[in-house]
Amino acid sequence: MDYGLLIIGVVLLLVSYLVAVKKQTSLLAGFNEKAIKNKELLGKVAGGLFFLPLGLLVVVSSFINYPYENAVLVSVMLVLLGGVYLFINRKLLD
């Protein structure tokens, strides 16, 4: 069991809750909040489609050791980030 990954996963789940449910979009770095059309949808997309699956994957990975664990985590993170980034830039920015 990897306690460092477990702590990171729990923090990601907490950020997911704060962004998706509590609409704390100020936690998201790199977005000009004036350029976003729908901040509620931004919170749902970033919190629910990026932080939540990534946090769950990191928590599960903290309990299970498997080969190429780091490569899998980085690959999944990049795919999720790319998808969310494209969605936000195409649908939510003016």
Rank of each mutant, 00 (worst) to 15 (best):
F51S: 09
V58L: 02
S61W: 01
K34Y: 09
F51C: 11
K39L: 15
G48S: 04
K34E: 13
S61A: 15
L41E: 05
L41V: 09
K44E: 14
L41Q: 03
G55W: 06
P53T: 08
G48Y: 05
E33T: 09
L56E: 00
K39F: 12
K44S: 13
G55P: 00
G30H: 05
S62M: 07
V45M: 09
F31D: 04
L28R: 02
V59Y: 12
V59F: 12
N32F: 04
L27D: 10
I36A: 03
K39V: 14
K44P: 02
L41A: 11
G55C: 06
V58Y: 00
I36C: 07
K44I: 04
F31A: 08
L28M: 13
K37H: 11
F50D: 14
V58K: 00
I36T: 10
F51T: 00
G30Y: 04
A35T: 14
G30K: 03
A46D: 02
K37I: 14
S62N: 04
A46F: 15
P53W: 05
G47A: 04
E33Y: 07
G48A: 09
E40K: 15
K34H: 09
L49N: 09
S61G: 09
F31N: 05
V58N: 00
L54M: 14
L54S: 03
L57F: 08
A35H: 06
G47Q: 01
L28H: 00
I36Y: 05
I36K: 12
V60N: 03
V59T: 11
A29Y: 07
L42S: 03
L56M: 11
L57K: 03
L57R: 01
V59H: 13
G55D: 12
S26M: 09
L56H: 01
G47Y: 12
V59S: 10
G43K: 13
G48N: 03
L42K: 02
L28Y: 03
N38I: 13
G48D: 05
S26W: 15
G48F: 05
N38A: 06
L54Q: 12
A35F: 01
L54R: 03
G47D: 08
G48C: 08
E40G: 13
L28S: 05
S26Q: 05
N32L: 11
A29Q: 13
L28C: 04
V58G: 00
G55Y: 01
L28T: 02
L52H: 08
G30L: 03
F50V: 01
V45L: 09
S62A: 14
F31H: 07
V45Q: 08
V60Y: 15
V58I: 14
L54C: 05
S61V: 08
L49K: 07
P53D: 09
L54P: 07
G30R: 05
V60I: 12
L42E: 00
P53G: 06
G43M: 06
G43Q: 08
L41N: 01
E40I: 12
A46M: 12
G43P: 08
K34D: 11
L27T: 00
A46T: 11
A35I: 10
V45F: 00
L27M: 11
V59W: 12
V60C: 09
G30N: 04
L57Q: 03
L27W: 10
K39N: 10
V45D: 02
S61R: 06
K44Y: 13
K39I: 15
S62R: 05
G48T: 10
V45R: 11
A35D: 14
G47I: 07
